[in-house]
Design a protein around this nucleic acid. Structure first.
Ligand SMILES: [Mn+2]
Ligand SMILES: [Mn+2]
Ligand SMILES: [Mn+2]
Ligand SMILES: [Mn+2]
Lengths: 255, 255
DNA sequence: CCTATTATTTCGGTGTACCTAAATAAATTA
DNA sequence: TAATTTATTTAGGTACACCGAAATAATAGG
């Protein structure tokens, strides 16, 4: 419960801890966190102790790591920064969706709260980034569409692409070349068992019937990176991730 | 002569060393460098040793510090980054000229070379920042207008404001409120001796005659922060600061 | 239930960029 | 010139964010 001097490392740790539970509910372990951050396990142990001192995470030795309320606040502010930056880079500076993640990963730690606000205003307060990920608002509210990972869906199902993991630029370029992007309509034709390819029909955003759809085989990496909302699921629920107070606190007096 | 792993500290040191000689020719001393960076003298001694190892500066103990050719290259790339960012913030995100310096001071270390290029393209490759400072082009060429500091000019002289030091936001706001900005026409009416105020007439950019000009007293801090080109001086000389190679080298493979 | 494997933490150590205090060189002044 | 003042460097130490290797806890297999 120290006075919380933040740093880009702390920001990244907290953001990764948050991201892990964004689309499923198991909390992250030390080893998983290390893998995602590209650091040694021992580094995570030390940093988690520090995060706990600063009341950003809950943690008992040898058990998974959970964000506290103020950790969640910081995480959401970083996620907001990251996704707004990605959106800005695409809309205002002509970046493609496979270029933005890396750039945003650094910029998110360097821009001021003022910058974020001006950017959000200029963009009209968008609610989805270029990969379909929801952008938390300035108060920490975030709307999660009820999505399913493509590899968990059976043949015959249809859906609209709601998000695509942005961590592999090559995959993004591949999908783009084959006409798959946010809001693309997909139908699962069939699947080869035991982690083989997934056969899908893809039609551009908005096409309700699959006439002009393209047939495509997707490998495992694509299948676990694509999320869809199935027809007839509820429109999306606003998750009140935080109550009270805006997100700007940790960054108003940063450096 | 090490393989040059750069860092934001190194970038700031080199940039400050460069800036010191941008408008006069004495090289910077250890103490002056420490003062401008806001660090202890001892920190400068250590860092200068490292800069010398990396062939970014020339330095003999107890003597002033000079950039080498590759130090100058790095410095110009940082100055370009800083000034393009300031220009972008004003033109695209509605910042005022007193807000941009601090923001650019951090962003300059975080943006990629791609970001710089896209920004420069969008702005139409500007050659002056919001404070009138010249922006080096991508090859390290920079055009310095033949400017004089206002406090070095005698009564009766006229000139056009070519640059205003951007380090004091309060001063920038003050000058702005009183109608002084880049390209304002100034005439020195008189001065109180011994560091007193300087009395000037100020007319908006473009006004050739001083009829609608405003009378104003400027204190010492304002006088040393304002630079003017006097009527009838040559139009400005392109200084070939670097020959061969573009500036992008140190940043293409940063983190 | 004991053992082997795996997960996690602890320990000792590194590089960067700072700091204060002490030592030394250079420049002034008497 | 000698003494004093000022500038600069060196010495010793801190915080941060890492690392590999060793120790320890948890889990899984027999
Ligand atoms: Mn990051
Ligand atoms: Mn994204
Ligand atoms: Mn800087
Ligand atoms: Mn400027």
């Amino acid at each position: 419960m120290k006075p919380t001097p933040t740093s880009s490392s702390i920001e990244d740790y907290v953001k990764v801890i948050y991201s892990f539970t964004e689309w499923q509910d198991k909390p992250i372990t030390s080893t998983q966190l290390a893998a995602r951050l590209g650091v040694a396990n021992s580094s995570v142990s030390e940093m988690v102790r520090k995060l706990k001192d600063q009341d950003l995470v809950e943690h008992e030795p040898y058990s998974p790591i959970r964000l506290t309320r103020s950790g969640l606040r910081l995480a959401l502010s970083m996620v907001r920064r990251h996704r707004l930056l990605e959106t800005y880079l695409v809309r205002e500076l002509g970046y493609t969706w496979d270029e933005v993640h890396e750039e945003a990963e650094l910029l998110e730690h360097a821009v001021s709260e003022t910058f974020i606000q001006r950017m959000a205003d200029k963009l009209g307060n968008p609610t989805r980034d270029p990969h379909g990920d929801p952008i938390p608002d300035a108060d920490g509210h975030i709307t999660m569409p009820p999505s399913h990972r493509l590899d968990e869906l059976d043949a015959g199902h249809r859906g609209r692409v709601s998000r695509i993991s942005d961590h592999n630029p090559e995959l993004l370029r591949y999908l783009d070349e084959h006409g798959i992007g946010v809001d693309t309509e997909l139908e699962i034709v069939g699947r080869r068992p035991f982690g083989g390819t997934l056969e899908v029909l893809a039609a551009p955003a908005g096409s309700k019937d699959m006439d002009r759809a393209v047939r495509l085989d997707l490998g495992d990496e694509a299948a676990v990176s694509l999320w869809v909302v199935t027809d007839g699921s509820h429109p999306g629920c606003t998750v009140q991730e935080l109550t009270g107070g805006s997100l700007m606190s940790p960054h108003t007096a940063s450096p």
